Amino acid sequence: MPEDAPETIAEKKLNPVVKTVLEMGPILAFFAGYVILKNKVFTIAGTEYSGFIVMTAVFIPLLAASTFVLWRLTGKLSVMQIMTLVLVVVFGGLTIWLNDERFFKMKPTMIYLLFGGALGVGLLRGQSYLSLVLGEVMPLDAQGWKKLTFRMMLFFFALAVANEMIWRTMETDTWVKFKTFGLPIAMIAFFMAQGGLMSRHSTEEDTPKDKTPKA
């Protein structure tokens, strides 16, 4: 019995609906709060803060709490989740401390540059770091992982450029909508577009089918 315990913990699965709520909840809360508070100014300790800054201060602990709950429910966090939380704390903290919303707007750029750069370094070393994150849900052969990783690297760099262009040239309202809805939609569209690659390089058919189901 004790020998089975670690395996049980490692295999903890989370309801997809709960997972989506925990991952998207803080982002949607930020959007809703921003819409309500965007035209308001709050004076705290003699300093005026916009609704955007106030919602940034709310978003940081919300994301930290949801990440903690994800860890408690699943027993693990991906490198992407950890790095996202770290960068949100750093750039969100700078936004609040310096009372300058530009730092929070830069955060997606830094995240996507970091992830894209990491994938690029892995490819130069002949490795697919993406397979370490998605290997459990997307069984691909080595060539498939290389191709998908390369495309994902370019996609991350494109998102970084898009984020810079939008926050530097457009109003805050536009950037908030892009961050809340545009980025998740772009991510879904990217993976949907990779359907052909995934089917060509899938290794699911290579999985032995004569395994006896566990009682």
Rank of each mutant, 00 (worst) to 15 (best):
K38W: 09
M198P: 03
L28Q: 12
E48F: 01
I188F: 05
W175E: 03
G46H: 06
T109K: 05
F190Q: 12
Q194C: 14
W167T: 00
M24K: 13
F156D: 15
V41K: 12
L73K: 12
G120R: 01
T169E: 10
T84A: 02
M110H: 00
K105N: 00
L14A: 09
E7L: 10
W175M: 00
I44N: 06
D210E: 09
Y129V: 13
P61N: 02
V69W: 01
T172A: 00
L124G: 00
M110F: 04
L154F: 01
F52E: 05
E3P: 00
F59V: 04
P16S: 14
K147N: 11
I188S: 06
E205K: 11
K12P: 11
Y49C: 10
S66N: 02
A5I: 10
N163A: 03
K214N: 14
T207P: 04
T203R: 14
L183M: 07
F156C: 15
H201S: 10
K209E: 10
S202Y: 15
K19M: 14
I36D: 11
S50T: 15
V88S: 14
P2R: 13
T47Q: 08
F157T: 04
L148Y: 02
T109N: 02
F42V: 13
K19Q: 12
D4V: 07
S66D: 04
R72L: 04
V41N: 10
L28W: 13
F181H: 07
F178M: 05
D100G: 03
N163W: 11
T56P: 02
P108E: 06
L140M: 04
T95R: 09
T203G: 09
V176D: 08
F191V: 07
T212Q: 11
P16D: 14
T207W: 02
G25Q: 13
S50M: 13
M80W: 12
T20M: 13
L159Q: 08
V21S: 10
L98R: 12
E205P: 11
A215Y: 00
A45I: 05
T47H: 04
Y129P: 13
A57R: 05
T172Y: 13
S128H: 01
V121S: 05
V21C: 11
W145N: 06
P26I: 13
